[in-house]
Nucleic acid binder design. Structure first.
Lengths: 247, 247
DNA sequence: AACTGTGTTTCATATAGTGAAACTTTTTTT
DNA sequence: AAAAAAAGTTTCACTATATGAAACACAGTT
């Protein structure tokens, strides 16, 4: 073909089908066909293969397709001691106790970020509600970290996206990315949410690949820019330590 | 071919390659080829496809292949609020507080089970070490649950396995599976570990599919058979509630 | 330098995946 | 209830496409 890659089309299509489920919990065959730009019968065959190995399953009542638990089983292989979301929790709790603010962990997914783990500043009860929340990659400290340390292709994709907010300056954004790479962390004050501020540092695996962004967030009147600059080394260090826990 | 399934061979092979990583964190191309019974060049092409989509990555220093973080991202789609290992934690903590014993969550993976989450009876510090531990599917309360409620194919595979322990009666094992299905839970006393006992109940998703086994374990002198029978309904109910939290 | 072990690329071959269309089942509309 | 529309599934001829042998590169050993 035209691209120089030595690759298997059927496999890429099957993986694309799984990627269709980012943001959508269940899809019908025709929805998948339309999203992945494939013919119904092709999708049907690929789904049968995915389902047979447990990567896709069907909802008993709605008969729609959804991701299978095999993915969870395999993701337990990503860190030394099992599920990364679990293994990174103690370090996040330690940081929360140290700084007294809410700690979040984000991963990039397409052109959004997903909060995969969080511990609240409130010491009493763990608020699990916001885990799973999806936010744009355009604004916020963690977005800057996730884009700045990602592969360059993501930046281009993001800037070229049709969803880029009108009135958001791309040159300034690029400058912020460059600042983030140099400093090793990013801050944001009332970018995504009025009255909120955050500091964020990258969690890199042993190969130096970006895995997630660790963020400390709180009310802007408490988390001043000065305080965040001061606390940044602690957050960078915690993120570094979390990286070493991954395989 | 001989089986009636309409499926795509290349895709099944690619998925098999990912499944090679259960128990092994990193593998070389030739190791994968040998495990999956495929030719080097086939594996190479399939790996290139998997790597391109982030399902496989290469370790920077050793150059070996390992699973990619895309799997973790996708597994966040499996429960309503993100990573299942995280979302199920509060319910496990509640049960621990109620019964005062260690609570574990196991998923089946090939012919072993993996502890994907645990909360210790010790209230002070969460002991994260045993998460990720792998145990045989032949013995223990959770093994019985995982096999009893799995698809019948697993039972056959397990009984036919070359690793079946000599001196372990298959008829008795099948009887225990049948008892487990009828009762809705399983117990074990000093089966896997001397001096230890456990009760286990299945976590089923809304479609009734087995996802995991929830287990309460402790010293056999405290967890008598009578006490476990008495506590079983609580564990069954907690496992049921956990199932409803999954998508 | 010869050697075993990796990972990678090339290339002829026919297998194996493809998509149009036919067919069945389910859901919606009349 | 009947008709129509949509979703899911299977069949099948075709050739595009994945395959594996072999050859190539590129380490690390001896």
């Amino acid at each position: 073909m035209e691209d120089g890659k030595l690759t298997v089309r059927a496999v890429e299509r099957a993986l694309d089908i799984m990627l269709c489920f980012t943001g959508a919990s269940e899809l019908t065959l025709t929805e998948i066909a339309s999203r992945a730009q494939l013919h119904k019968s092709t999708v049907h065959r690929l789904l049968a293969s995915l389902e047979g190995k447990g990567f896709i399953m069907r909802d008993g009542s709605t008969d729609k397709y959804r991701l299978g638990y095999r993915l969870w089983e395999l993701s337990a292989n990503l860190s030394k001691e099992g599920d990364p979301g679990i293994i990174l929790l103690p370090e996040m709790e330690r940081l929360r106790d140290q700084l007294g603010e809410t700690i979040s962990l984000y991963v990039q997914d397409g052109l959004v970020r997903v909060r995969v783990q969080a511990v609240q500043s409130n010491h009493a009860i763990r608020r699990v509600a916001p885990v799973g929340a999806r936010m744009p990659l355009y604004v916020g400290a963690s977005s800057k970290v996730l884009v700045a340390f990602a592969e360059p292709a993501l930046q281009e994709q993001l800037l070229a996206s049709a969803d880029w907010p009108t009135g958001l300056d791309q040159t300034a954004f690029l400058q912020q990315l460059s600042d983030t790479r140099r400093a090793g962390f990013a801050t944001s004050v009332e970018e995504r949410e009025p009255g909120a501020a955050a500091v964020s540092a990258p969690v890199l695996d042993r190969g130096g690949r970006l895995v997630a962004a660790l963020a400390v967030s709180g009310p802007a009147n408490r988390l001043t820019l000065e305080l965040m600059q001061e606390q940044a080394p602690l957050i960078v260090e915690a993120a570094r330590r979390m990286g070493t826990m991954l395989r």
